[in-house]
Write a protein that binds this DNA or RNA. Sequence first.
DNA 1: CGCTTACCGGTAAGCGCTTACCGGATTATG
DNA 2: CATAATCCGGTAAGCGCTTACCGGTAAGCG
Lengths: 363, 363
Amino acid sequence: MELTGHMAQSQKSNRTSKTAPKAALTIYDVASQAGVSIASVSRVLNGQGSPRAGTRERVMQAVAELGFVPDGAARALSNGLKEVVGVVFRRGDETRFQDEDESLLFMDVINRGIDVAAQRRGFDVLISSVGFSDENVTSRIEAVAGKADGLILHDRMLSAGSITRLSGVVPVVTLAGSPSRGAMNVRCDNEAGMRALVRHLVVDHGYRTIAYVAGRSDSPDNRARARVFEAEARAAGAEIYTGPEWQGDYSAAGGARVVTGLVDTPRRLPRAIVCANDQTALGVMHALARNGIKIPDTVAVTGFDDVPVARHLHPPLTTVRQPMLELGATAFDVLYSRISVGKGEPEVVLPVQLIVRQSCGCP
Amino acid sequence: MELTGHMAQSQKSNRTSKTAPKAALTIYDVASQAGVSIASVSRVLNGQGSPRAGTRERVMQAVAELGFVPDGAARALSNGLKEVVGVVFRRGDETRFQDEDESLLFMDVINRGIDVAAQRRGFDVLISSVGFSDENVTSRIEAVAGKADGLILHDRMLSAGSITRLSGVVPVVTLAGSPSRGAMNVRCDNEAGMRALVRHLVVDHGYRTIAYVAGRSDSPDNRARARVFEAEARAAGAEIYTGPEWQGDYSAAGGARVVTGLVDTPRRLPRAIVCANDQTALGVMHALARNGIKIPDTVAVTGFDDVPVARHLHPPLTTVRQPMLELGATAFDVLYSRISVGKGEPEVVLPVQLIVRQSCGCP
DNA sequence: CGCTTACCGGTAAGCGCTTACCGGATTATG
DNA sequence: CATAATCCGGTAAGCGCTTACCGGTAAGCG
């Protein structure tokens, strides 16, 4: 009966492979060569039971000689655990890559943190990026969910309703400014970071006029940063320049557009510009420099994130460091906690750090 | 019998789950709610056969109401195809992240190209990074291989022998300076790039003294670049500064070490320094600036790669652009060709492009 | 009306692995 | 010596899905 099944399996391999023939090496081959049952092979490979030394050696030898690697799908189906975490994040359109490379670095580093934390638990990371014009995002993410034990969603991937629905399929952790029902959330302390930044400008440097180049208006991160910016600047008695002309979209192009618009019309520039993120600051700084405006002598500029590029700008950017690695690692740990013991922290807020470089006016 | 099996399945879920209880929703639940067989559900979801409109509607409605997402492991086992590509790459030690962030960007962008190409074929990307001090690299990579249909290995992941052995398990594409038996390889045209770069320095700029800060000596990429560097500089009649003091290791720290060593002892600096990669150039430029040496007025500096940071350095770095996205996309396409029709190009060499900015002396 | 053909969907087997359960052999104890 | 306990490994079932094969029904044709 076993032989029949094993023979029949080769038949189906030829029949159902829609692409290339699949390697036919299975645990049955190892068991056959080692002269033991498939259960013994499994026990040896997985450290279960108490195989005799001789049994163990024969199995390991057969594995080495045959070059056997267990099939992950079979193990996952049997174990009920794939040991895979799905990570989905936004990517720009391919046609815009060159201009907005740096905006992806933030996510790359977070994903790095996820990867390191996942490895500590024997998990691998299944990634899928979504372009702005991509369709079928929901079904794409569902396919990832079907291949993973849990999902980590970067900001702005799905509506809150879709996230809630998805969390009925697998545990979900979001890296977002605000949490969704059913999902756990990990974020940084926008408020403390922006508070320290604005105080540094208006209190330490004594700048009297200041403006905020906003990120996307529908972004909770942006709203939190804008709110604290305004409160702190006002509390320090600084004059705030506001208006629709200060609306950016987190991109370098958006930041450059704001500055170009201000310079092209007779508007005053504030003594300091606080940008919603580093990428925006990149565009702002380029536009200021292109118009002969000295940073930070004439206008100080700050960002938020401390992506790897920030320290290489000229002048090096003063910013708020998001603990990107820790964000990623924490997201995984929260997810793992849920997968392993059934519960994870609903929301974790990680501290940020003011990174003072030269763009604010410090030496 | 079917009910018995379906009931028994809930029992095993509780028994074998080593972590959390797994969601119990399966294709049987959909079939039951829609009043059809599981085969009909499968046909509707996978566009097979010719389901009646009414059948189709009932199935889709049940899927939506239940929030059913097919299990990827089950599909993979049945189909013999996981629709996953494994990608493995080198990562620095965690303790060194901050200093060498930029060296990882190169790989991030390649991985981005892989992701985009994979999505065109309905594949997702399973990543696993390996730290320098990590043990059990081989078994780690084997586990990834067991969860994927094919592997893309970045440079320096495994010995050639191990790569050949692994290619007996799944198709393998390397992104390396030289190919391994059994694996396909995708790389850029080091020779043409370095040729253009050196000519730009010694012919266009007329620099007479020049040196090359080497990458790792065991790296085929480095050897190719060094060879062409020397041939072109010599052909142009330039004087080449060489010696063990010019040995770097592809890192910014290595580049800085080379310059610091030269400056600390009374050695002449050449008019131009060609670095094995952008990261090395980063360190070289920082060390030169720290020692008051003007770039490019006193010493011109070039890199190789054109990672996103290069354009933000001061001055912006002249370098050779590796088509990182295309490298990644091509690697996937070659692998996919092998998976789908059984054969892929043994080696693909992609063109590079000289990127002239200010660090070489151009305005 | 009887036969042939096309359409549709249900049943059962299997993908490759894990492991509960059971039985045989060996060891320990009274 | 008989009984109990322990050790070890094989057998069979099942994880969730896909689909070949077969049978029932309806339509078409002579």
